[in-house]
Write a protein that binds this DNA or RNA. Sequence first.
DNA 1: AATGAATGAGCCTTCATTCAT
DNA 2: GATGAATGAAGGCTCATTCAT
Lengths: 180, 180, 180, 180
Amino acid sequence: MKKKISDPKQRLLETATSLFYNQGYHATGINQVIEEAGVARASLYTHYESKESLLLAFLHQRHTDWMEGLQRFTDKATKPKEKIAAAFDFLFDNNEKEHFRGCAFLNILSETTDNDTAVLAVIQDHKKGLRAFLGEILAKEKQGIKDHVYLLFESAIVESQLYRHQWPVQEARKMAVGLL
Amino acid sequence: MKKKISDPKQRLLETATSLFYNQGYHATGINQVIEEAGVARASLYTHYESKESLLLAFLHQRHTDWMEGLQRFTDKATKPKEKIAAAFDFLFDNNEKEHFRGCAFLNILSETTDNDTAVLAVIQDHKKGLRAFLGEILAKEKQGIKDHVYLLFESAIVESQLYRHQWPVQEARKMAVGLL
Amino acid sequence: MKKKISDPKQRLLETATSLFYNQGYHATGINQVIEEAGVARASLYTHYESKESLLLAFLHQRHTDWMEGLQRFTDKATKPKEKIAAAFDFLFDNNEKEHFRGCAFLNILSETTDNDTAVLAVIQDHKKGLRAFLGEILAKEKQGIKDHVYLLFESAIVESQLYRHQWPVQEARKMAVGLL
Amino acid sequence: MKKKISDPKQRLLETATSLFYNQGYHATGINQVIEEAGVARASLYTHYESKESLLLAFLHQRHTDWMEGLQRFTDKATKPKEKIAAAFDFLFDNNEKEHFRGCAFLNILSETTDNDTAVLAVIQDHKKGLRAFLGEILAKEKQGIKDHVYLLFESAIVESQLYRHQWPVQEARKMAVGLL
DNA sequence: AATGAATGAGCCTTCATTCAT
DNA sequence: GATGAATGAAGGCTCATTCAT
């Protein structure tokens, strides 16, 4: 079961990923998606029920990829404190690679209302997953410390997007490490 | 030179404020704005050059109002530690009143690319203003403490929006107060 | 692969032809075009990139049709002098059929600035084609005569539009024939 | 009864003249007119009944100015043949000064339908005036020669606009002079 | 599975004009 | 006479989706 190089479904997802992430969901039209993906308009609807379902696919994929990246960074270290430091290094690396576009989930969250229950659920699940992931690294710490690190971690992402600068990552990293 | 009760410019700004904040900038059409404001389509352009300039007006107004609100809360306290606690109480209060829609500036930031220089500048100025405000309260503290409080403050806003829950505000408040 | 009776692209072109020619380009709105063509608004953009590209399509089609008509008239005669006379008869005929709306290309030229390079090029190409066509009929004449006939031919079109009268065609015809 | 330097009515007329002539009537919005004239929107309607009446004012003024210019050129010569040559030199001069925008009246004619009776009348009157003017210079010639020169004169204007080149003026001048 | 055509609704902006001051 | 505000209609174009092939 080989995948074609030019698998339309995959190309649509990749294009949507790039566009939704970099310019936002509502600012991205499906015209742009299908054009950059190089597929026919109707083909989008062969593979995805709607624009929103393409958004959901993007978020799911992003969750997997992002958590894998985080895992890869933290796996390099052994001690909890070092793992946490490595987690912040992952943010630093992402900022470089993705030009400070911040968190895909929080960005979409900003475009989401209470009516978009499916989208909201995926976003919250992602963050719960992250929180749990950091919590496991800090299994021996008290809940207060876990939360504290998590909140600093979140700030680091958002604030480096805001200022287009790494200082929040670096400062938050110091603070988090200092807590441990 | 009295102001009319139904000043259209003001109504447009109020309507835009509500819509941009609650459902996002790109998700809000000019049609909805003028309809809810009860003005003719072209009247919008008598007062605002473009949709983006209406957005900028909203952000400026929001900055003023929000900082005033924050000021009002912190003025109630005298000691720095209490002022910081009061600042978090302001967030708590906002969440109740605005149904966890989070930070207007960070939400718009998510819909903003590097090309939107004017918008980006207003957002960054707002956050610099907030950071400076908190920094003055903590004038006697080291820069590291100031930053730490600021990052927790930001987290509190974002995460309570994400979870539609006050716990991040309450936890971050405890942590911040604990630092002082 | 049969063509549908109500081919929308063709209907759009025909409608645009009639409207652009009879009331001008800028005076014709897209709304009027789609309404009279009986197609949905967006369908226009399925077939034509923009209003200007519809204009270009109109001019191209008009060039072909008009030159064919001219050809048909001049083919009836054998001697150059008679062919030229027949060319003026073609103008006479057009004026009757099209109610003295003059030259589609010169009319659009009036609405064209130096920035509209694509449109300007089509217009100039049309006139170069006409000039070459007349020049071939008068192959044995000197260049000065060729130009003279061409200029009278152009005057005949423009002035009969201006006065809503055939006299310029008839006078110019006499003059041109007299030159040969 | 002095005229103010910044007479609004005059400024409006001058601005409209420039814009209607250079970019066309329908392509010119009153916003652009009032902005470039530096007057308030409603002031336009203080002085002119409507956009069309501004157009008529432009055409009337243009007629006067243009005929004066033509007069000035032909006055330099004494013999009919030289006066006609001078008339063509006037066209040459205009083309240089006005960047080959052609005849203001014929351009507006292209944007005019049979319903625009007032506009059409002004245009026709202008051309009748020109034709009479040339006719008077050639008072001793037969009607056929008068018409011939007139038609070449008209061609010279239109075709130099079309090709953005002086050759039609120069060629038509030679032909006209050759007829006398 | 893939596609080009078609669509009603909506996008943001400007139109020419009128009104109250 | 001059003006800023206000307006309904229209400007050209794009939206997300569906349909017939």
